[in-house]
């Protein structure tokens, strides 16, 4: 039996434990053996994106130590998985990188491509709009971004469409960056806030009750600009865990 490791990004661990619980639940419901490696910390992305390569490298090595013995590494974050799956290339020896990269998955990607989920016995009788966070979309290719001349596809929408009673409405410029950008949100606060407000205006115009996404970092940034925003991680809906937390 394949053994999966749950990678819970630091801010999900302390601010959004429900998202990690939902990820654990849906994987277990599907029959996977899941463990949470207890010594995991951070993938190193904040350091890498800030130009501190040496520190990022040490955290990448740390990550490998904690996760290398599993068949799958799964996290409810497009951005953190993208760090591991794409950017560790710059930080690890080639063979080590290939090994860790090919078994790392963002949860929606895993459900769609590996578990090949075709039906879900969950209901979510609400209207939602999907924000397509950048790293998941453009680095992990969870969908086809609006810039490309390729047939449209969205793995995340394919999954959401399996949920009963859900109503998905389009979000204008749904794949435009929300302005979080990690340390960008601190270094370029004014621009970051403006981008976030623009995203929120589009959400408001969509008429949806819930803004859903696959990266809590973006949702956290947007919620910080609108305390009344109702946002959910996609996996909370897919796992049937959203109704409990509402």
């Amino acid at each position: 039996m394949a053994k999966a490791a749950l990678f819970v990004p630091c801010f999900v661990n302390s601010i959004y434990p429900n998202v990690a619980l939902a990820t654990l639940k849906i994987l277990q419901d599907l029959g996977f053996e899941v463990e949470y490696p207890p010594n995991q910390t951070c993938c190193g992305q904040p350091f890498f994106n800030s130009g501190f390569i040496k520190e990022a490298k040490e955290l990448a090595q740390n990550f490998v130590k904690n996760f290398k013995n599993y068949d799958y590494i799964i996290a409810p974050s497009g951005s953190c998985i993208s760090m591991v799956k794409v950017h560790y290339r710059e930080l690890l020896p080639p063979k080590e990188f290939e090994d860790i990269s090919k078994k790392s998955f963002e949860i929606c990607e895993f459900l769609h491509d590996v578990a090949k989920v075709k039906e879900l016995n969950v209901s979510f009788p609400h209207t939602v709009a999907l924000h397509q966070s950048c790293h998941g979309l453009r680095e992990l290719e969870l969908g086809v971004s609006s810039e490309l001349n390729l047939p449209y596809n969205s793995k995340v929408l394919n999954l959401l469409n399996l949920v009963k009673d859900i109503k998905i409405v389009p979000l204008k410029n749904s794949d435009e960056c929300c302005g979080f950008g990690g340390t960008f949100s601190i270094n370029e606060s004014e621009l970051s806030v403006k981008m976030g407000r623009d995203k929120l205006a589009n959400f408001k115009a969509s008429g949806a009750q819930f803004l859903v996404g696959y990266d809590n970092s973006c949702l956290m940034h947007l919620a910080s600009l609108d305390p009344n925003l109702k946002s959910l991680h996609v996996v909370e809906i897919l796992a049937g865990a959203a109704n409990e937390t509402l």
């Binding site: 819970v8 434990p17 619980l21 949470y36």
Partner: peptide
Amino acid sequence: AWGSSRTVPKAAKKSFSEIYK
């Protein structure tokens, strides 16, 4: 840390790692 135009998210009462343990 996060500027005056934002409200800051609250940490949950228990982290996932605590609940899991």
